[in-house]
Design a binder for these strands. Structure first.
Lengths: 130, 130
DNA sequence: ACTTACCGATTACGCTTGTAAACATTAAGC
DNA sequence: GCTTAATGTTTACAAGCGTAATCGGTAAGT
């Protein structure tokens, strides 16, 4: 295994592509038509658009295909947790110098925190501290 | 005032543009050359690149200019807090259905929370709860 | 006054993204 | 067997972005 050079270039996933990923994370595998059923109404897309996005995601190795008769079944290769973690960290790094507390302060300030959020975060903190 | 149609289209700020904004948020007003001093080394940019980004930011009404002799002084029009708030909310909306608690769960999981963060968040929670 | 150096403005150019049409292939129905 | 409908592939094209060179004006030095 001396050769792992052209390997993992994490290739950012665009906004439109992300919508497709969400559909596949919600349920997979799906055909292109099924993905369209899940997202075309919401985003006002046509089936060809979804197909383009799916191919790009395949190229980016974020989605895998398995032939099923004449068509393909699409399945996420990238785990949602990984994606979400990467994106969150990117934001925190870019805007808050990598520290989460100021992010929290901002969300609190904007009243983006519900009571449930606060309770949940408290519970998490308790766990972290022990 | 019946006419406020061509008004505020919030025009997303790109990644490169954001770097320029950070320089201006750190200190302003600055000349183009001074902005370059602040960011060109880091991002490996040339002065013309910075000038392009500055013009685009002016077009997007995120930066204002004031003539100073033959050159311009650049100053942020968009407040950092507003920008940061918008971006944070966008992320939370897109990835966590608008709820902040799952974001924290993720950051905690990735050990992106330092002890200082935890202490700070606790203090904020205390304030929020009262 | 003439040249020079410094600026903003204009133009450039390849890449990604959003959005899709056109094309090719093939399974299925008549 | 031939047509049609479904499906992936190829091509398209405008807008945004990253990165920058060039142009044109003008203040400053000589």
């Amino acid at each position: 295994m001396a050769k792992s050079e052209e390997d993992e270039r994490p290739e950012r996933i665009s906004d439109a592509e992300h919508a497709v990923m969400e559909a596949l994370w919600a349920k997979s595998p799906l055909t292109a038509a099924e993905v369209c059923e899940a997202v075309c109404a919401e985003r006002d897309w046509s089936l060809p658009t979804v197909k383009t996005l799916l191919s790009r995601l395949v190229t980016k190795q974020a989605v895998a295909t398995k032939p099923d008769g004449r068509r393909f079944l699409y399945r996420p290769l990238l785990a949602r947790d990984d994606y979400v973690g990467d994106e969150s960290r990117r934001l925190v790094d870019r805007l808050f110098g990598g520290r989460a507390a100021p992010l929290f302060a901002h969300l609190a300030q904007e009243e983006a925190l519900t009571d449930a959020d606060i309770a949940e975060i408290e519970a998490l903190l308790k766990e972290l501290k022990q």
